[in-house]
Amino acid sequence: MNIELFRDYCIAKKGVTETFPFDEKTLVFKVMGKMFALCALERLPFQVNLKCNPDRAVTLREEHDGHIIPGYHMSKVHWNTLLLDQLPPDLITELIDHSYDLVISKFTKKLRTEYDALS
């Protein structure tokens, strides 16, 4: 999966915005203002950070040694860094969905109501 397909998949999700809150090289995707994906635009091979269940994060790192690593500049417990050109596209989309769903599951009642109201 290339960076454009990654971006297109993330931005198409409900309630998602993209920003550059850290610098002009790190694209951040948020759902209702909560971060679920980061993308290093100038790092080769292309790398993305995705939130992940801690137990699953360890398993993924073991199964995809060197291609999924602890989150770069993130919590090593809750984030993984993926090398996009080294992983199957269906795994990447599954992990984007997992990250997005984890963030949504932690919404406050008020935020959940706002999210549910989106079309």
Rank of each mutant, 00 (worst) to 15 (best):
M74L: 15
T93P: 11
S99W: 08
A40S: 15
K14T: 14
Y100C: 11
S105R: 12
V103S: 03
D65Q: 06
E63D: 05
E94T: 14
E24I: 10
E62A: 01
E42P: 08
I69K: 13
Q86L: 08
D116G: 08
M35C: 07
L84M: 12
F46E: 12
K76L: 10
K106E: 08
A37R: 01
Q47P: 14
H98C: 14
V48S: 00
H73D: 09
L38N: 02
L87W: 04
T108P: 04
N49S: 01
L41E: 10
S105M: 15
W79T: 11
K51I: 07
P70N: 05
E18F: 03
T59F: 03
E24A: 02
C39D: 01
I11H: 06
H67Q: 06
G66P: 14
L82S: 00
H67N: 11
V31A: 02
T81I: 10
G15L: 14
V77T: 11
H78P: 12
G33Y: 07
P88G: 07
G66W: 11
D8F: 01
F36G: 12
L60P: 10
C39N: 10
M1T: 00
E24N: 06
A37H: 06
G71W: 03
K30T: 04
F6V: 00
F6S: 00
S99Q: 04
R56G: 11
V16N: 15
V31W: 06
S119H: 08
F36H: 05
F107C: 13
P21N: 07
L38D: 13
A40C: 14
F107V: 13
E24Y: 01
P70C: 08
V28Q: 03
R61I: 05
